[in-house]
Amino acid sequence: MFEAKLQQGGLLKKILESVKDLVVDGLWDCDGAAITLQGMDSSHVALVEMLLRAEAFEHYRCDRNVTLGMNHNHLSKILKCANNDDIVILKAADQNPDSCSLILESKNGEKTSDFVVSLVRIDTDQLGIPETEYSAHVKMSSGEFQRICRDLSQFGDAVQITCSKQDVKFSSSGETGKANITLTHSATVDKEEESVTVDLKEPVDLTFALRFLNLFTKATPISDTVTLSLSQEAPLVVEYKIGDSGHIRYFLAPKIQE
């Protein structure tokens, strides 16, 4: 038996909004400690990994490990019926379930809706993501990162991210010309969520497709801050913490010269 009760259904709505445009069908692996989701976009350029630990739930029970193949468009239809402060309960049998039940309860307990979502068969296993030493970590406001990605999309399809000393520069160019946005490591920190931290071991200079970064920023409502981890030989990691009980990490392969 798998059963998980989330007090604030809004969190599940936000998580789904942040993955559904990137990954159509995702593997939701449930064990005694957490729910993890992993999936790739159809072109295999980006990968998303979500972790939500048991402590995020008011009630969590998972007698045997179970994998739920979720079609995110179907799940999204159900969660559109939920208010942010509705309680959401997920239920599934623990041996090869072909469906998952979702129960929505209003805060005042006066309305209950229940749904059954058919599960889909996904023939891939979750990948082991290699441990990587990154050359640069940039922590910044998630809203600012969203703004930069959106603004630069007006100028080109790709963004060049350059980290050197205490700066991170985002550049894009196209027919209209060139745009550069530079953020400097904050000298003083009044509000952590508004400050910029650049932790650099080696300079990096990488180019990424803005289309994917704009999809990643759908996770902005989940956290006030975002961390970018960069290394010349590895995919970019864009991480949003889910409070103290999990994260959404997006991995994006850099572009290379044709």
Binding site: V45, P130, A234, K255
Partner: peptide, 14 residues
């Protein structure tokens, strides 16, 4: 510029 396959980068980095 072209996008790379993320799996090939992960496997190359192991």
């Amino acid at each position: 510029d072209v996008n790379q396959n993320i799996l090939s980068i992960f496997y190359n980095s192991i």
